[in-house]
Amino acid sequence: MVSTLGQPPARWWNKWENRKEFFEPDGSWTSNIQRIYTPVFRPLHQRMWHMGRGETPETCEWDVEGGELRALEELLRAMLAFEPAQRPTAQQLMESEYMAKWAMPAWRRQQARAKQKE
């Protein structure tokens, strides 16, 4: 979670007794983690690029220029907020830019294709 979203709220970060096993006092990762861990720590934005199967706007499957990648990242960050009170409601998620511009139109297109096959 920390590598993906950043540090949790200070009240959690400061109470985490085993934090020293993973992080230096400045919040950077320790160089020698003694536990099993994922060898590559990636922030959410980098994970999103990998999900889009491309490293450039031209090769990525997201509509990068149109804002799809950014809108989806904003949606996911909101849903993954550490503090539950800061997470959006289902109604807010459905009204988000990503859902309105990309997800729902894609779903409608898929529904129309399915009806044509009937």
Rank of each mutant, 00 (worst) to 15 (best):
K101S: 12
W62T: 05
P8L: 11
T38M: 09
W16P: 04
E83N: 12
S96N: 08
G27P: 04
V64I: 14
T30M: 09
S96W: 01
M104V: 10
E65F: 01
Q7M: 14
W102E: 04
G27K: 04
Q110P: 00
M79V: 09
H50Q: 05
Q46K: 10
E95T: 01
F22Q: 07
Y98A: 06
A78S: 14
R113A: 14
G52R: 05
T56K: 14
K117P: 00
A85V: 07
G52K: 04
F23V: 08
G66H: 00
F23Q: 03
E24N: 15
R19I: 04
N14G: 09
K20Q: 11
V2N: 05
V40S: 05
G52C: 04
A71P: 00
M104F: 09
C60T: 13
A114N: 13
P57V: 10
F23R: 04
Q91C: 02
M79W: 10
F41Q: 13
P25L: 01
P9R: 13
L93A: 11
G27E: 09
E55R: 15
N32M: 05
T4F: 04
L80P: 01
P105H: 00
A100N: 11
A81N: 10
E74Y: 06
W62V: 04
V2H: 05
R113G: 13
W107N: 04
E21L: 14
R53T: 12
W29D: 08
I36G: 09
E61F: 14
R109I: 01
A114K: 11
E24G: 00
P8H: 10
R42H: 11
S31V: 10
N18S: 11
S28T: 15
A100K: 12
Y98I: 02
Q116V: 06
E74P: 01
G27L: 02
S96E: 04
Q7V: 05
Q7I: 03
P25W: 02
G66T: 03
R47T: 12
M104D: 06
H45T: 08
R35Q: 15
Q34E: 14
T89I: 01
R19W: 02
I33L: 06
R70A: 09
M94E: 09
A90P: 02
A103M: 07
N18M: 07
Y98N: 00
T59N: 10
R70G: 07
L80M: 15
S3R: 07
Q86L: 05
E17Y: 09
H45P: 02
Q110R: 15
R87H: 06
L44W: 03
R77D: 00
E97H: 06
E55N: 15
W13P: 03
Q111Y: 01
F82S: 11
R109G: 02
R11S: 11
S31Q: 13
E24F: 15
S3W: 14
D26R: 04
A78Y: 01
C60W: 03
E95C: 10
E58P: 02
R19D: 08
S28L: 03
M94D: 03
G6W: 12
N32V: 05
E68V: 03
E74H: 13
